[in-house]
């Protein structure tokens, strides 16, 4: 039952994205222009901490912009309609999965774009990409729930950042640490435990979102 609902909802999200591509293209343009602005002010960056920090800041704001629309954009009537069709668990899971996929894609585009302009100093590509993928899942779970919270308030977009930063911090600190190791070229045999911590954090935020969303849903 859940699986069936999940499939239908995911298909709906993807279809919706394909029909009005402006949201998706908007994010891509956002990433490209932010990277270009950084390029204009920094040219090439060879200092690993700076490279890493700038990359994650760009990606973080792109992520907030991407995910914030998942509940805020939808009208009250539409949400009510979903309510009659599917359970809250299916809805939150479908949104998290969809946003995670979107974020994985956007983070890789961002990485490519960033490498092109600012330069690529990452020495352990596998580790860096793994951190991007795991990070996308975690960030998507936190932000999807926060966007559901923010959608219920009056000034939702500014609240989105304020609410999500403190609770994303454990995830972000670990991510920045792992990607710093990847930039420095530390081998996977040393850093695998950080990937484990990252997966554990993903699991925690995913479970929290899954458990808490049904309470937000009742209106």
């Amino acid at each position: 039952m859940l699986i069936k609902e999940l499939k239908a909802l995911l298909a709906k999200e993807v279809k919706l994205e394909f029909r009005n591509k402006y949201a998706f293209n908007g994010i891509l343009l956002y990433v490209a222009s932010t990277v270009f602005v950084s390029y204009l002010s920094f040219q090439k960056i060879v200092d690993p901490p700076t490279w890493n920090a700038l990359f994650w800041i760009i990606l973080l704001f792109a992520a907030i912009n991407t995910v914030s629309k998942s509940f805020i954009q939808e009208s009250k009537g539409l949400l009510l309609y979903y309510y009659t069709l599917a359970g809250p668990q299916a809805i939150i899971l479908s949104k998290i999965i969809y946003n995670a996929l979107l974020l994985v894609f956007i983070s890789f585009v961002c990485y490519a774009c960033y490498s092109l302009f600012i330069g690529n100093i990452v020495q352990n590509q596998v580790l860096f990409m793994a951190s991007l993928a795991l990070g996308s899942i975690g960030i998507s779970s936190v932000l999807t729930l926060v966007s559901a919270i923010a959608a219920k308030t009056n000034n939702n977009l500014s609240l989105m950042a304020v609410l999500s930063f403190p609770i994303m911090m454990p995830l972000l600190i670990t991510l920045i640490k792992v990607s710093k190791y990847a930039v420095d070229g530390v081998s996977l045999s040393v850093t695998y435990k950080y990937l484990l911590v990252l997966s554990l954090l993903d699991l925690i935020v995913l479970t929290l979102s899954y458990l808490l969303f049904p309470y937000l849903w009742r209106d």
């Binding site: 919270i149 609410l163 609770i167 309470y215």
Partner: peptide, 10 residues
């Protein structure tokens, strides 16, 4: 309700 959800998460 919203605050309670956020509180648990935080």
């Amino acid at each position: 309700r919203i605050a309670a959800v956020y509180n648990v998460f935080a």
